[in-house]
């Protein structure tokens, strides 16, 4: 899955004087307030952190409340979905009009019917909606399944993602992992992966962000792996 990165940050946490008796706790509380909220500074959502204080001394801000600034070095795990990234999410609801899923357990995503490729067709089975591929009978998306989709846009305030299942390398992760390699040999698909690969490269080279690869990642072509190794 893309969109996850690790980041080393130099931070100064300003601690209220009333918290001075337990500075460690105050720092953790301050950092916890970053969690699961979009932060402009990090251009993403902080999912986890580990800190170690840099200095035993803190700088005191003069003023009505003498806040003191503690310097920290923090290791942050940041989730920053951007358009065209591929994300994975667990499907929680399927209707004729949309597929709803949850990414990383906290961010919700919707894929509306106009963003679902025609290959995937809605069917009501035993009162429950599923999407089935017209070409591959085993490619089924149902509630509880994990799907891979492309990001179209993101509402930063509540971390609501609008996604798309138009690209061919999207759909049920279970099916993609098993069968998509063969399908990817089609010339049509190859250009897609080619594009994706370039994008991936840009991300790795462009910033400090590291691409996050998990076990469920699509098997990559050798070429692409080479590109990443560089």
């Amino acid at each position: 899955m893309e969109g996850l990165s690790k980041s080393d940050a130099n931070l100064i946490v300003y601690v209220h004087p009333s918290q001075s008796k337990n500075v460690d706790k105050a720092i953790l509380r301050e950092l916890s307030s970053l969690l699961f909220k979009y932060s402009q500074a990090f251009d993403g959502v902080v999912l986890a952190y580990s800190v170690d204080p840099q200095d035993k001394c803190a700088r005191i801000l003069s003023g009505v409340h003498p806040y003191f600034g503690v310097r920290l070095r923090a290791n942050l795990l940041i989730f920053s979905p951007k358009p065209n990234m591929l994300l994975e999410g667990k499907v929680v609801k399927i209707t004729r009009e949309s597929i709803h899923c949850i990414v990383l357990g906290f961010s919700s995503a919707i894929i509306t019917d106009e963003n679902i490729r025609n290959e995937l067709k809605y069917k009501a089975k035993h009162g429950e909606g599923v999407y089935v591929s017209r070409y591959h009978k085993r490619h089924v998306i149902k509630v509880g399944a994990v799907i891979r989709f492309e990001v179209k846009s993101l509402d930063e305030e509540i971390l609501h993602i609008s996604g798309s299942l138009i690209p061919a390398n999207t759909g049920s992760v279970h099916w993609l992992d098993k069968y998509f390699v063969d399908a990817a040999t089609d010339s049509n698909k190859e250009t897609k992966t080619e594009e994706e690969m370039e994008m991936q490269e840009q991300i790795t080279v462009g910033g400090e962000m590291l691409s996050f690869v998990n076990d469920h990642e699509i098997k990559k072509s050798k070429k692409r792996r080479r590109a990443e190794d560089q």
């Binding site: 949309s98 709803h100 919707i110 509306t112 509402d155 305030e157």
Partner: peptide, 12 residues
Amino acid sequence: ICLAASNGKYVD
């Protein structure tokens, strides 16, 4: 429910 799930703007 559909509105809330369709767009982050409507959740509130």
